[in-house]
């Protein structure tokens, strides 16, 4: 084999110049987006791309769901996980065998649970399904759901399922919305201990695996949370971004660090973030849109 040096060719100098320009462009975009915080100049572009990709993602999710159900019903067999070649080969055989009935029944139960949640908490909910999940390589835990501003869902609304708090809406296009999960490292939730109403701040650790945990830092250092204590949302004014009284998880253990002289309670979330499907978005009473609103019997039913 003939030996060549790397980077030979007439375009060598040109490609270096292009590289410089592109790196500069990327750094400019990063700076624009990172410095501005809320109301970043990138937001219109994000919304535009979102409204293009949102419907495509919805459609893809709808089309691929039956196949995915076949996979997920066999997922309990952990050895199959990750072996994408085996899965691809077996997929066509399994597709015929697997009836999606039990999964549909499970979804109905989840929806029932949501209706019950609406009745118990007194909030109006818009039902939604998770259509896309952000890859962990991006180091943020966010999902796309198939409702958007056309159903009355806007930024900073609480998202929950029948187990408890899921996250909050950080972006909404007309047909989809992006939800930041509470396990994300950027997520901070005002939380309250169920037994003594002590308040604190709950931060995610960025992992959705079964071992995914949240850290609760209590405002009052003297309080020692007891194991098994339930943590609920504390709620802020007008329910933005989190409404009050939504269960989040249970205290697993308490870690105290002598250096920071503070106690961190480790919380096991009620929600299984690796198997999110049917969720509900808390919307103001009397919201109308292209989706039925689940509300309390005493509240005004919209559909």
């Amino acid at each position: 084999m003939r030996r060549r040096r790397f980077g030979q060719g007439p375009t060598h100098d040109g490609s270096r110049r292009v590289l410089g320009l592109l790196v500069l462009a990327a750094l400019t975009v990063i700076t624009l987006d990172a410095r501005a915080g809320d109301g970043s100049p990138i937001d219109p572009a994000r919304a535009a791309v979102g409204s293009l990709f949102g419907p495509v993602e919805s459609t893809t999710a709808a089309v691929t769901r039956p196949f995915a159900d076949a996979i997920s019903s066999f997922r309990t067999n952990k050895s199959l996980r990750g072996d994408v070649a085996t899965l691809a080969a077996e997929n066509s055989r399994l597709r015929g065998e697997v009836s999606t009935d039990p999964l549909d029944r499970q979804r109905l139960a989840e929806l029932d649970g949501l209706t019950r949640t609406a009745a118990e908490t007194g909030y109006s909910l818009v039902g939604a399904r998770v259509i896309a999940i952000g890859p962990v390589q991006s180091f943020t835990r966010s999902v796309t759901i198939d409702v958007g501003t056309s159903s009355g869902v806007t930024k900073n609304m609480t998202v929950l399922n029948n187990d408890g708090l899921v996250g909050r809406v950080v972006q909404a296009t007309s047909s989809t919305a992006t939800v930041l999960l509470i396990v994300d490292t950027e997520s901070v939730v005002g939380a309250r201990l169920g037994t003594n109403s002590e308040i604190g701040f709950l931060r995610g650790r960025g992992s959705i695996a079964d071992s995914g945990r949240l850290d609760l830092e209590l405002v009052d250092n003297a309080v020692v949370p007891s194991g098994g204590d339930v943590v609920v949302t504390w709620g802020s004014q007008n329910g933005v971004p989190y409404v009050a009284g939504i269960p989040i998880g249970r205290v697993e253990s308490v870690v105290s660090s002598p250096r920071q002289s503070s106690r961190i309670a480790v919380i096991v979330p009620f929600v299984d973030f690796s198997a999110l499907d049917v969720v509900g978005v808390v919307v103001p009473q009397g919201t109308t849109g292209d989706r039925p609103v689940i509300s309390t019997p005493t509240g005004k039913a919209d559909r």
Binding site: V23, A26, V179
Partner: peptide, 18 residues
């Protein structure tokens, strides 16, 4: 960077993939 459900600072994947 921009397609949902991305929620990180835009431009980071652009830099990495350049």
């Amino acid at each position: 960077d921009l397609a949902p459900p991305a929620d990180h600072v835009a431009g980071r994947w652009a830099l990495a993939l350049v």
